[in-house]
Design a protein around this nucleic acid. Structure first.
Length: 263
DNA sequence: ATGGTGGATGCTCCA
């Protein structure tokens, strides 16, 4: 059996517990990386998660915003978290499982205006992407890494429903795309989703709430990613974007991405 | 610099 790792921005873990249980029953992942848990550590629903069969539950959260977690059925060999851009705002957690260091990221959304001079949130996002990609490129040489999460960037033209219309929108600007594609093109990582779905095909993991009927019209973006170091690439067996969850009642705006790694 | 909706919080902020 391969190591099955899922990543999912649940947009409030407490609102999504039933969806997590259903997803877990259908996909049986060994590891689940969550973003936007939106819960302080003291209120984390640890019992509910352990009852699903995840013996190890790691979380780094805060009240109301952000928050990440890693749930594992397999033994966790090491774990930790890192502070990015000098802000301890709960956007990263990692665990080594079956020899693979799994890093779970929640990149800042970046606010509405794609100009770092006028929008401090966009400046923060660019700084975060710079720090994260620099770190990733350096660490990739050392050991097998699987970097997953909501990177809040759709880097390819086919990662959004209308490139021309959205190229000046935060999340799809050339600068943001360059930050991600630079690491991939440097050969440090394989974009797991694009290894299984060619770049000529549209692929999305997020359909916004605010755009009317975005899911029905398939007005999506690919914001959720999985990157494997090139040393892991030969072991990549399968990838699924579990679009079905977006049809469930009161869904997250993001859907899970599931990756299978041969052991 | 627009609105749309959803989540957490507490009479708005964030995505």
């Amino acid at each position: 059996m391969p190591l099955r790792v899922a990543t999912w921005n649940v947009n409030s873990l407490r609102q999504r517990l039933e969806h997590l249980a259903r997803f877990d029953a259908e996909q049986r992942p060994d590891v689940v990386c969550l973003q936007e848990t939106k819960v302080a550590d003291g209120s984390f629903p640890e019992r509910d998660i352990k009852d699903l069969g995840f013996d190890t539950v790691l979380f780094a959260g805060q009240k109301a915003h952000n928050g990440v977690a890693i749930l594992s059925r397999r033994p966790v060999e090491d774990h930790g978290a890192r502070v990015w851009c000098g802000k301890d705002d709960k956007r990263h957690i990692f665990a080594r499982i079956a020899g693979v260091e799994v890093h779970c990221f929640y990149v800042p959304s970046g606010g509405p205006i794609p100009d770092p001079e006028r929008n401090a949130k966009f400046a923060h996002k660019l700084a975060f992407l710079e720090e994260m990609t620099r770190w990733a490129a350096a660490e990739a040489k050392a050991r097998p890494l699987l970097l997953v999460g909501d990177l809040n960037v759709a880097p390819l033209e086919t990662d959004v429903w209308n490139h021309k219309r959205l190229v000046r929108s935060v999340g799809h600007t050339p600068g943001e795309s360059r930050a991600l594609l630079g690491v991939l093109k440097a050969g440090h990582f394989t974009d797991v989703c694009r290894r299984f779905v060619p770049e000529t095909e549209h692929l999305y993991s997020w359909w916004g709430y605010r755009f009317p009927a975005s899911f029905e019209k398939n007005y999506g973006w690919r914001l959720d990613h999985a990157w494997a170091t090139t040393s892991l690439a030969p072991r990549l067996q399968a990838m699924q974007v579990v679009t079905d969850t977006r049809t469930w009642e009161k869904p997250s705006d993001h859907v899970p991405v599931v990756v299978d790694i041969a052991e």
